[in-house]
Structure formats: structure tokens, C-alpha cells
Amino acid sequence: MGIEVTVEGLTMSFGSQTIWRDVSLTLPAGEVSVMLGPSGTGKTVFLKSLIGLLKPEKGRVLVDGVDMVGDSDRKVFAARKKFGLMFQDGAMFGSMNLYDNIAFPLREHTRKSEKEIRRIVLERMDMVGLGGEERKLPGQISGGMRKRAGLARALVLDPQIILCDEPDSGLDPVRTAYLSQLLIDVNTRTDCTMLIVTHNIEIASTVPDNMGMLFRRDLVTFGPREVLLTSRDPVVAQFLRGNRHGPIGMSEEKDAATLAAEAERFGSLKVREMEIPPQLEPSPGLPERMGAVRRSQRVMANLHLLPAEAQEAIQNAHRRRSMGGPPPPVPWASA
């Protein structure tokens, strides 16, 4: 069972530049969460702060009673063994082949025999589609493969918390879809808490239970996925639809003058309705995903606190599921 991660009033800045401030949220235990945000809003910095690689100047990150920001290195190092982090470009050790890379955490932290290590490593490599590539060095494979190897290494100790830094970048859409399914399956199997940082809308709308968005040095919202997917907040709506018109500009944000000129030219833009795609289900043969069960209980109990559109979307999804049928077929998938 995963561990809850509580972030309280986290503020980070490099010199005089504030990256984000006063971020507070809770990653519920055993559920999958996604942090969205335009490029350069400090999503990666946020991930690294959760695991204690970067030390924000204010706030706390509580994992199982350990403050990853303020506690002693010894405690933080011990707590890190509960984490698996998948780096943006894999961060494989260049001097070791893939097999040794993925076996590294096992050799460091367990007393398993070399035979058992071999079994686990090969199984994980198969899982991410890297079977047969054990002898390759990280420099000899493509970026996408390095990424998948990074995921295999993050999974090898069955961590209770998995953090993924842009799992989709450098992957083609098909591999991205496989990876999304893989993440859901991993969550089903190990019931770990998961946080995925991405700006891929496909992942964001189909994988997570909860979703948040960082923009302009603030956490815009964090909550059940339906809240963000139905949000009329100009920033969120613009981002989810990939529009040019809205507060997000080519550089981090638009200034007031550009925005006003835009408003004059296009009038008040109608927000296109967005269909909420069903959430991915675990692959056939796997048991029910406990994270989803807990989330649905939690969300249904607090339904009245959510915005009306989100309530409707959640009830629709709930109705669909309780009718017992599989999720509605995707229109373009032939029967």
C-alpha cells in the first residue's frame, strides 16, 4: 500500500527568481496524480523537492513522518528508499550496461542472490519492452529506450511512491499509450502512490485519479481529475485545449497589453466543450485497482464541495461504471 505525501506551504526560488510559492497539496495514498504545467513552470523542480534533492526555502514535504525538506540527511536518505524516481532522460549510469543499471538498487539495498536479481531485472526489462537489450550501454540506445530503462530501474525495488518526470517526452504516441497502461497496471499491482509530471494531455486526461496544475508560480488547483478537466479557469481551459488564445503565452505568460489586444480581436472566446475521456482500466486479468476504489469513496463523500460541472462529470462516470459495462468504446476503435 502506498504512502500519503503531504506538501505544506512549499516555496522555492533560485536567487531572486521565485519558481513557485506556497504550494500545498496531498497526494492520496495509492492513487495516481498528475501535475500539469507549461514548460518552465518548475514541474521537475517540484518533483526533485518532493524527494529531497532540492531544498525549498519554506514549507514541508511529509512522507511517513519524515520531512524531506527539513530533516537530517540520514532520515531523508532512509526515506528515499521508499521512492522510485524516473528521470526525464533516464539518468542511467553511463559506465554500466542496462542490466547492471537496473540491478543497481537491488545490489545496493537487498541481500538477494545474483540469480534472484537476474529474475527480477529480466522481468522488469520485459515489462518495459527492453527484453534482450541487457548488454547495451546507455550511450548505445535511443532516448525513448533510456527512458523506459529508467522506469524499469525505478520499479525494481517495488517502491511505495513512484515519481515520473515527463514519461512521454521522446516517446511516440503508441509507446506513450503503452506506457500509460503500464503505469496504471503498476499502480494496480503494487498499490503505490504515483505522481506523474507531464504536459501531455493524453496522459493527463486518461491516467490519473487526481490532477493539479502549476502556472505562474502558483498551484492553480489540485483535486479529482474531473475538477480540472471541466474547469473554466482560463489558464486551465487554454492549456487543456492547446489554444493560443488565453493567459499562457510563448514565453511563460502574456502581458496585459497583448491580452487586451487579443480580446479585442477575437472577442470573448467561447470555451470549447471538452469530452472527458474515461479513465484507463487495469489490463484484463489484473484485480480491481484499489486506488480507484478508495478515490471513488473519497470523492463521493465530498462531492458537494466540488464545482457543479465536476459533480456532474463524476456522477456520469460513476453511473457508467455501476451499470457494469466496460467503459464506452473509443469512437475510432473498430469493433
Partner: peptide, 16 residues
């Protein structure tokens, strides 16, 4: 070169 490839971070993350 290991530091800029984030290998050091990766190692720390694995508690080493």
C-alpha cells in the same frame, strides 16, 4: 559529466 547527466541525483534518489 556524471553530474550533468543527473547520475549523481539518480544515485542519491536510490538512497546511495
Amino acid at each position: 559529466s556524471r553530474t550533468i547527466r543527473e547520475e549523481m541525483d539518480a544515485m542519491e534518489v536510490m538512497g546511495v
